[in-house]
């Protein structure tokens, strides 16, 4: 039986007068793999960033791992430790080696001893299949390798849920698959995941649900089979026909 790890209820967000998120309601249960897609400017990145409070919402409630997210919350860092985030541009720490990137979080905020942090880090580096790069700096790695390191870095924090914000959009085409493979294997291991991505193949392969957003609203939410074969909304149909053309 799975419990909800993320609950968004009637969430609204504005940038000035621009209404970025309109009445968002959705729930992520433990073990769910959710893919969020939509045209650019649809609010999908904004939505995923509110989940660990990199962006603040103005109305509604966001509950993550049992904690309400709001501007005066005291222990935002505690929530964030349990929510891994992978960015479009990797955002590795360029002044630290790959291994140090992976050990930083566990040692500095989890208080894990150095030896143990190193063991965990090496384990996840094996997992993303680049243990031989441990002592290099991020700048010496390819984009695909860097994104895999970024995934491993999040995993080292032993998160309860992983958020992916367009993890393959900044990659050269030939590197997309190595990152997706990593994500697929992560999904197979039962990690709870929310992914903003346009990789429909990935959505078909692993998603429990696909969410389509447009103009700040959730337009359609369905299981992948129905989503792709039987889209309900006109806007979803348009979007799918555009990205599946080639």
């Amino acid at each position: 039986m799975s419990a909800p790890i993320i609950e968004m209820t009637n969430v609204n967000k504005w940038y000035g007068t621009y209404h970025a998120l309109r009445n968002i309601n959705f729930t992520v249960n433990e073990g769910d793999k959710i893919v969020v897609c939509g045209p650019s400017g649809s609010g999908k990145s904004t939505m995923i960033r509110t989940l660990n409070y990199l962006e603040a919402h103005q109305e509604g409630t966001i509950r993550v791992n049992g904690t309400d997210m709001h501007p005066r919350m005291k222990d935002v860092d505690k929530v964030r430790m349990d929510v891994g985030m992978v960015f479009q541009h990797f955002n590795l720490f360029p002044h630290l080696t790959i291994l140090e990137n992976l050990m930083a979080g566990p040692m500095w905020v989890r208080g894990i001893a150095q030896e143990e942090a190193r063991k965990t880090a090496m384990m996840y580096l094996e997992r993303v299949r680049i243990p031989e790069q441990a002592d290099k700096y991020p700048g010496q790695l390819s984009g695909g390798q860097q994104q895999r390191v970024a995934i491993a870095r999040s995993l080292c924090m032993k998160p309860k849920v992983m958020l992916f914000d367009e993890p393959t959009s900044a990659l050269d085409p030939e590197m997309v698959s190595e990152v997706l493979d990593t994500m697929v294997s992560l999904a197979k291991d039962g990690m709870t995941m929310v992914c903003v991505t346009h990789e429909m193949g990935f959505a078909k392969a692993v998603a429990d649900r696909v969410i389509f957003m447009d103009e700040g609203s959730i337009v359609e939410e369905n299981d992948p089979i129905n989503f792709f074969e039987n889209p309900q909304s006109k806007r979803t149909q348009n979007f799918l026909s555009q990205i599946l053309q080639h």
Binding site: N52, L54, D77, K78, V79, R80, M81, V83, G84, M85, F87, H89, N91, L92, F93, A104, G105, W108, V109, R153, S154, M157
Partner: peptide, 22 residues
């Protein structure tokens, strides 16, 4: 880059820690 702040904060690093170490 702002991304360095976001990565640090999203891992639960506080302000001081992010400033000092990142």
């Amino acid at each position: 880059n702002k991304g360095q702040w976001e990565a640090s904060r999203s891992m639960g690093f506080g302000f001081g820690l992010t400033m000092r170490r990142i």
